[in-house]
């Protein structure tokens, strides 16, 4: 049912995160929902991976479990070499703070903080000193220099997502999770956001894992993981369009 990627990938042998036998169920009795069924997955470092699947396939749940936002029912999740199962809520939160970056589909920013303050938020929460150089670099790369003083309500959708990306990058995380980052954007803004994510992988050496249901967005990624009904049905490296469409349509291994 699953395809495990050979760890010798073009980008190197390191995995940023992996899951073994990851299972997540909700509810009980007649209302039980199997969101994930025994997922085995390796996410290589320094690559842009897209997790694709139709709605209800469990891709968001997979991301939540990998990111430590939700606890798995069974199975293990290892991120940056650390097993998440043994951590209590506070330890998990601190781990997230230091090793994981997030970009959500919408509602990424706190409405009462300016863009600059939003970017620095994880550092502030951690109580870490602000690395001005890193901040300037990230702001420069994302082209936000003239927007850092604005409130989110004064920014366009694309600009808000860029701020979210900047915030995810400023802590130099081991892995960045993006949940449908272009879901609410028009094509121009989508291209911007996706190009920025690609660029951060290429030039800043980040590892980005993006959950999406759009083919056009997945085209930007290096690798594509296809998930159906809570199980991984394909893990493709630099797939062509046809290969990808076929994997999405087919439900067998």
């Amino acid at each position: 049912m699953t395809t495990t990627l050979d760890t010798t990938t073009p980008a190197g042998t390191r995995t940023a995160a992996h899951a073994r036998g990851l299972t997540r169920t909700y509810g009980a009795g007649d209302n039980v929902v199997h969101a994930l069924r025994g997922v085995d997955l390796d996410l290589p470092a320094g690559r842009f991976t897209a997790i694709m699947g139709p709605s209800g396939s469990g891709k968001s749940t997979l991301m939540h479990c990998l990111a430590g936002l939700d606890a798995a029912t069974s199975g293990t999740v290892t991120v940056a070499g650390r097993d998440l199962a043994g951590l209590d809520d506070t330890a998990l939160t601190i781990f997230r703070r230091e090793h994981i970056g997030f970009v959500f589909q919408a509602f990424n920013l706190l409405p009462m903080l300016t863009a600059g303050q939003n970017i620095l938020l994880p550092l502030e929460l951690a109580g870490r000193a602000v690395d001005r150089q890193r901040y300037d670099q990230v702001v420069g790369v994302l082209g936000l220099a003239d927007r850092v003083g604005h409130l989110p309500s004064q920014l366009s959708g694309g600009q808000q997502q860029r701020v979210a990306i900047a915030r995810a990058l400023v802590t130099q995380p081991d892995i960045v999770f993006a949940d449908e980052p272009t879901g609410n954007l028009d094509s121009e803004a989508s291209a911007e956001v996706l190009d920025h994510l690609r660029r951060s992988v290429r030039e800043l050496g980040m590892t980005v894992v993006m959950v999406t249901h759009e083919l056009a967005a997945a085209a930007y990624a290096d690798d594509v993981v296809v998930i159906h009904d809570g199980a991984v049905t394909a893990h493709l490296t630099e797939p062509g369009q046809d290969e990808l469409v076929a994997a999405l349509r087919g439900r067998d291994a």
């Binding site: 790369v141 994302l142 082209g143 121009e188 291209a191 911007e192 996706l194 190009d195 920025h196 690609r198 660029r199």
Partner: peptide, 8 residues
């Protein structure tokens, strides 16, 4: 390359 991510 950078595509839309390049500064204009």
């Amino acid at each position: 390359g950078r595509g839309a991510a390049a500064p204009a």
